[in-house]
Design a protein around this nucleic acid. Structure first.
Length: 892
RNA sequence: GGGCGGAUAGCUCAGUUGGGAGAGCAUCGGCCUUACAAGCCGGGGGUCACAGGUUCAAGUCCUGUUCCGCCUACCA
């Protein structure tokens, strides 16, 4: 056995070195198939589908936090005895991916149109095979326990089939339609965008006041606009029906400047009389509101721009100009004609493409839509009735708000990379055919001139099906039966609408059940200054670099410890460094234990026996408490509480107090039985701590697990500790409390008297309480060790020693003898300070107890507590004052 | 415009049924005590944004104000 001890010390280096360890254990887990769910397992199921990262993505802080939290839950539930499944996968990310490949082509002097659709798609697939797996490897780096055998991609054959199936069913139910509608157009990406894909930003612009002359007679109406170039598409001017100023103008005709078209003045309650001049120019083809007004008044629509943002034939002399050049020229021409009244600066919101930040152009266009009203209603009810809980609850309001005001979802995109819409047009008879498979001939006219819709679906369309499409839908698979609805979805609030709401709608519609029971919305990771991390700001902290520098476990623990609900995380490297120290502490605690286990060969959970000594009973009782806290924290998604509880327990209680306290027993005692007990307890608490820590810091715990005597297999297969195995022991906690208080008191005296840490001191303790004296006496060894005491005398009563400084509690008076002369002035000051503090406290409590209202209305337990305090304070004060008197006498 | 969140120690933040203000980091002082200097021991530091109210009792509940964030929206 002596050999074994020295080997352990050699095997475990002084400091934890994460890199080699991390690599080794991840492949170990994968090889042993520990991440794989078993469909035949009879344990209770617990399932999560990953929010699929874009294949173009590289791991950022948001991914890291998101996936670490999922991994913590997955590992916890697995150890807690569930049949867990974590489905991983990636998203094809239509626009983003297409942009990447287009950029590649551009570098070669090509573009997608010269290459052609088929070849282009091939290129994208090729790119995906070569570079699209990057993010997956980065997730592995994080330690994610995903079932990689079930990895999916939104463009997989199976998922594509689900997409077509959903499209066809919705179409046949009348929930998908095609129509002319005003949509947001990105002139750079050449595609329609859903409302959600438009980001609004405040811009400093101008409000131009333009005169529209009457067609008959003299005079003009002045309209105000921020976008003068759209006037070329105006088909009316609207005023408010309640606006007295324009009462006689309604129904008259105006001459549209520059193009000289005749347009009417109409009245519509949408117009706000207080803004601008109260007259609004109406451009139905280039403004969503104007479009609605145009519908109401049956106005013609005139599109003046093409899909690249350039003016078209309808713009007459402005044809071919870019929209901003055109704006300049229109303004200049108006000015020249004396029709520009004035220009005022104005801040207003401008929509941008969420992908490329180009200013979007509202444009009239033929697109496919999902009619979402009915679907949304059901999804609202599901949350209202608690079938799905949104956590933190505050997000429910945001969700309801959005769902109640939801507008139809534009699902067609004019790009090539994505699920091509399963619609075909017959050129012979104009029939539209919607089917999951391509038709050979037109079912109506039997013609063969059939071509498929060019557009593809919004990427979020396939994402919306993710919870059931990844489990095999539309087949009725055993996976679906077992793991749907999934247990929880973990995501950031930024995709609550994009994704979560739509999954709820689709899940309810096609599965008849919510896709997940809980939705946990986690924080946003910001930089140390609270700024959102972004490449353009240059404040991005790269998780991969962090993991290189500090190790994955330190990184994981940091994020978990800061993942408080409802608040963003401000991350700085300093903090991660702090938690690296914690990982190292765990490492060294284990190192210490392993160096001192001798022949102890068991890591069995040890039931606290009454025969165990105080510190052993105490640490087991504390362990019970931390188990409860960790479990509750994880069940309630309070990751920070769970992590903090572990941090405190392992470092402060286990390392600082418990291990220090048993050192004499381990080193010196002749009592073999006591030593064995200490060894068993320290080992079993270490074992439990490692298991509790494992979901947070999987690598270091797995590494240490294999050094524990008697451990078998992976720590992932070990049971998560249960509170019921460790009865709480209040007596031991109370007694330990007294000892810790006295020891801290002596340490304090030493420090204040500048006693060198290596120097031992002599102490006399007085206590009128026999039980207290017995306790101190039994544990005087601990006091000697932890407070560095040479001679310790325990008395019931008697003269207070001269030449001593004191620490007074209500139960024990502790005197530390000084070798030289006590500085009476300093000691008096010290005691007086203490006395004043106590008197203030005492007074406060006494006032409370003097209040008859308090005595009448406060619960008995609270009153009793206050009374206890009075007793304690009075006892301490009396003793301190007695000491002060003695000091005074000495002085005299 | 509507909505939500935040304001607690120098910094970053906990504080879940209202009952004597906490942690980490930083700082100061002392220690290379044979697991760990990525460590050990000790100390200092807060009118819990402001003003009212409810209550025996408010960081915690209510109202208002100020200052920061964020989301959302069809004021041209």
């Amino acid at each position: 056995m002596a050999e074994a001890i020295s080997t352990t010390a050699e095997i475990l280096p002084k400091a934890y070195e994460p890199h080699e360890v991390e690599k080794r254990w991840y492949s170990f887990w994968e090889q042993k198939g520990l991440f794989m769910a078993k469909i035949t397992d009879e344990k209770r199921p617990y399932s999560i589908v990953i929010p699929p990262p874009n294949i173009t993505g590289s791991l950022h802080m948001g991914h890291a936090l998101n996936n670490i939290l999922q991994d913590i839950l997955i590992r916890y539930k697995k150890m807690a005895g569930y049949n867990v499944l974590w489905v991983p996968g990636t998203d094809h990310a239509g626009i983003a991916t297409q942009n990447v490949v287009e950029r590649q082509l551009a570098a070669e002097g090509l573009d997608r149109h010269t290459v052609g659709r088929e070849k282009f798609i091939e290129r994208v697939w090729q790119w995906k095979e070569e570079s699209g797996g990057q993010i997956i490897n980065q997730l592995k780096r994080l330690g994610c326990a995903c079932d990689w055998s079930r990895q999916r991609f939104t463009m997989d054959e199976g998922l594509s089939r689900a997409v077509r199936e959903v499209f066809v069913r919705l179409y046949r139910e009348g929930l998908i339609y095609r129509g002319d509608y005003i949509i947001n157009w990105c002139p750079r990406c050449h595609t329609a965008l859903a409302d959600l894909e438009v980001e609004h930003e405040t811009h400093k612009g101008n409000l131009y006041y333009i005169r529209y002359p009457y067609a008959e007679g003299t005079g003009y109406v002045v309209v105000a606009t921020t976008r003068p170039e759209t006037m070329l598409g105006d088909t009316a001017v609207a005023v408010s029906p309640e606006d007295e100023r324009y009462k006689n103008v309604i129904g008259r005709n105006l001459i549209l400047p520059l193009l000289k078209r005749v347009i009417p003045v109409i009245s519509d309650s949408y117009v706000d009389p207080s803004f601008g001049t109260g007259a609004l120019k109406i451009t139905p083809a280039h403004d969503p509101n104007d479009f609605e007004i145009g519908l109401r008044h049956k106005l013609p629509t005139v599109k003046v721009m093409d899909e690249t943002g350039h003016m078209n034939d309808e713009a007459g002399p402005y044809r071919g100009l870019g929209r901003y050049k055109c704006r300049k020229k229109v303004v200049a021409d108006l000015e020249a004609e004396g029709l520009l009244e004035k220009i005022e600066p104005l801040e207003h919101a401008v929509g941008h493409c969420y992908r490329c930040k180009t200013v979007v152009e509202p444009t009239l266009s033929k697109q496919w839509f999902v009619s979402v009203k009915r679907l949304a209603e059901r999804a609202v009810v599901a949350v209202e009735t608690g079938q799905t809980r949104i956590i933190p609850k505050t997000w429910e309001n945001t969700y309801f708000d959005w769902m109640h005001n939801i507008r139809d979802w534009c699902i067609s995109r004019q790009i090539w990379w994505g699920h091509r819409i399963p619609a075909w047009y017959c050129d012979t008879c104009s029939e539209v055919i919607i089917d999951t498979e391509a038709p050979v001939r037109c079912p109506k006219c039997a013609g063969k001139n059939i071509r498929q819709e060019e557009d593809v679906l919004d990427t979020w369309f396939s994402s919306a099906l993710w919870p059931f499409s990844t489990l095999g839908w539309p087949e009725e698979t055993r996976e679906l039966k077992l793991f749907y609805p999934t247990s929880v979805l973990i995501t950031g609030f930024d995709i609550l609408f994009f994704w979560v709401a739509r999954m709820l709608m689709m899940g309810l519609h096609f599965m008849g059940e919510v896709p997940f029971k809980d939705v946990y919305i986690h924080a946003l990771v910001r930089d140390a200054e609270g700024q959102k991390m972004s490449k353009s700001k240059g404040n991005v902290i790269d998780p991969l670099i962090i993991m290189d520098k500090y190790g994955t476990d330190a990184f994981r623990f940091t994020l978990a410890a800061f993942a408080a609900q409802g608040r963003d995380i401000r991350l700085s490297e300093q903090r991660i460094e702090g938690y690296r120290h914690f990982i190292n502490k765990v490492w060294n605690a284990a190192r210490f234990v392993l160096m001192n286990v001798d022949g102890c060969q068991t890591v069995e959970v040890l039931r606290p026996a009454p025969r165990l000594s105080l510190e052993n009973r105490w640490i087991l009782s504390r362990l019970k408490e931390v188990i409860v806290q960790v479990r509750e924290g994880l069940e309630d998604y309070r990751f920070n509480d769970a992590a903090q509880a572990l941090y405190q327990f392992v470092w402060r209680e286990y390392c600082d107090w418990y291990l220090e306290m048993i050192k004499p027993t381990l080193y010196l005692t002749e009592d073999q039985e006591a030593r064995n007990a200490a060894q068993q307890v320290m080992l079993s608490v270490l074992s439990a701590s490692l298991r509790l820590l494992h979901p947070f810091v999987p690598f270091v715990t797995e590494e240490l697990w294999h050094y524990l005597p008697g451990s078998t297999g992976s720590i992932m297969e070990a049971p998560f500790p249960e509170g019921k195995d460790y009865p709480e022991d209040l007596e031991s906690e109370e007694q330990m409390g007294l000892l810790m208080d006295v020891i801290t008191g002596i340490r304090n005296l030493r420090s204040e008297m500048n006693v060198h840490p290596a120097q031992k001191v002599n102490v006399i303790m007085l206590s009128g309480d026999a039980a207290g004296r017995a306790l101190i006496s039994v544990h005087e060894g601990s006091i000697r060790t932890l407070a560095r005491v040479e001679n310790l005398e325990i008395r019931a009563d008697g003269d207070r020693p001269r030449g001593a400084v004191s620490y007074i509690t209500d139960q024990v008076e502790t005197y530390m003898l000084l070798q030289g002369v006590v500085d009476i002035t300093a000691e008096t000051a010290r005691l007086q300070k203490e006395a004043v503090k106590l008197q203030t406290e005492l007074k406060r409590v006494q006032n409370k107890l003097a209040n008859s209202d308090f005595l009448e209305r406060a619960p008995a337990a609270i009153i009793a507590k206050e009374k206890d305090k009075v007793q304690e304070f009075v006892a301490r004060l009396e003793k301190i004052e007695a000491n002060l008197k003695r000091l005074k006498n000495v002085q005299v």
